[in-house]
Amino acid sequence: MNFDSNFILGCSAIGAGLAVIAGIGPGVGQGIAAGHAAAAVGRNPGAKSDITSTMLLGQAVAETTGLYGLLIAMLLLFVKPLLP
């Protein structure tokens, strides 16, 4: 089968849009982490700085999967690996 490059570019754009749906997971995860951190600060306000830094570290690590989706989208849109 022979596709012209516009068709491939359009499909790449759809794929990029689908790839960034990966952002849902980290969003939910970061929200849960922040919620638990808020609860922890409420229980023990003295440990606020420790809790905040732990929360930020965990959130930044959890963010990685979403960023992989973003990278796939970037590759599809700008590097165009599917074009012949």
């Binding site: 930044a60 690590v61 963010e63 990685t64 960023l67 992989y68 973003l70 990278l71 970037m74």
Partner: peptide, 10 residues
């Protein structure tokens, strides 16, 4: 490396 790269790139 991908974490750092993708964050700054985004």
């Amino acid at each position: 490396s991908l974490r750092l790269f993708a964050n700054v790139l985004s």
